[in-house]
Nucleic acid binder design. Structure first.
Lengths: 189, 189
DNA sequence: ACCATTGATGTCAGTGACTGTCATCAACGT
DNA sequence: ACGTTGATGACAGTCACTGACATCAATGGT
């Protein structure tokens, strides 16, 4: 065992979610989070770039899951179908995490700064998705539009899922949302 | 004439855009902006909630233009067509502002914090748009999806317009983007 | 002309997020 | 035994942002 208890990073993330939930994001100081995790404030900033980032540790993995699934779709798959496959993979990531997601979303919903951070994470997913589609041979601006549409479906689907009274399958909710998007954009001119 | 030169708010916005462009957003302090505008730092924060907000003074008017146009569309207009009408109205707002928009977008593109703020302004437009569609009788989650799709078209269309080598009409670019979205989501299953 | 009110600003002290720098010390390889 | 490495602590500093109070031109009523 080292000089310090291992897992400082995880303890910081846990302490932050607890404190943001208990007293609110603004009312919580980084010093408090660090104290609860048993480290100093300086150590917090060695693990997380800022006070918001501590809630978004999983964003990278989520983006990877999305991009990988899209990249691995059969080459002849239509862009929007590849995106749908990616959203399916994203849905898998959240299996068994409904309660945790709900708790986290409640914290984010209560603070604009956290919403901003969430939005830029989603924008990063959209950018990676567009790039992946482009690599599959989809031209711009179609790739960018398909990516933005996919993230829109994710946003709406995730919100439906996380606020639903009884737990459903996220992938299923997103499939329904994708169908709803198809319908609303398919209106005859 | 008053004790102070009038138009402090406008001078602050101008000074901020200049300094963010000259030295970068991070390297610019609020004290510098205030000095160039001929006021104190405290006065800056009386006009703008924070260092980022000074670049987004027009966001409210933009949202109003969008919402108004959508609300005023003929009742039998399909949701996506009402959204398209809203985007047309948004396009009008930028007529004659291509150079200024380009300058501003360059500043925003150079800094993640400013991108976050831009994203939450767009999210606010999406929320207002969804609410307006809902008031028109569009059910959820269709209203939310149509709104997100509309904002996606705005994002892509605006980016195309602002980075285009020669100036075009924004409303026209957005119409083309909307058509591209229709195409990509209309793929046979 | 006088005076109370109002509104925009200045002044100043304070909090807290975030950074740069150096010291410490267990673990690890040689 | 010893040098290196990596995570952490300690500490001073900058800057965004806020609260509280003072100032003073303009305004409007008397």
């Amino acid at each position: 065992m080292g000089r310090w208890a291992p897992g400082a990073r995880g303890r910081l993330a846990e302490a932050a979610l607890e404190l943001y939930g208990e007293h609110g994001y603004e009312q919580t100081t980084v010093a408090e989070i660090a104290r609860r995790a048993g480290v100093t404030e300086r150590t917090f900033f060695r693990h997380y770039a800022d006070k918001r980032e501590v809630l978004f540790d999983g964003a990278g993995a989520l983006r990877d899951a999305l991009v990988t699934a899209v990249a691995e779709a059969r080459p002849e798959t239509a862009p929007i179908e590849a995106v749908a496959a990616g959203l399916d993979a994203v849905g898998e990531v959240f299996v068994g995490r409904h309660a945790q997601s709900r708790r986290r979303q409640a914290v984010i919903a209560a603070n604009p700064e956290l919403q901003e951070r969430e939005l830029i994470k989603l924008a990063s997913m959209a950018a990676a998705l567009a790039e992946t589609l482009h690599a599959r041979g989809v031209a711009e601006p179609t790739a960018g539009l398909a990516a933005e549409a996919g993230i829109a479906v994710f946003k709406i689907g995730f919100e439906l899922w996380v606020t639903a009274p009884e737990e459903r399958e996220l992938a299923q909710v997103m499939r329904e949302s994708m169908d709803a998007l198809r319908s609303v954009t398919a209106t005859a001119r």
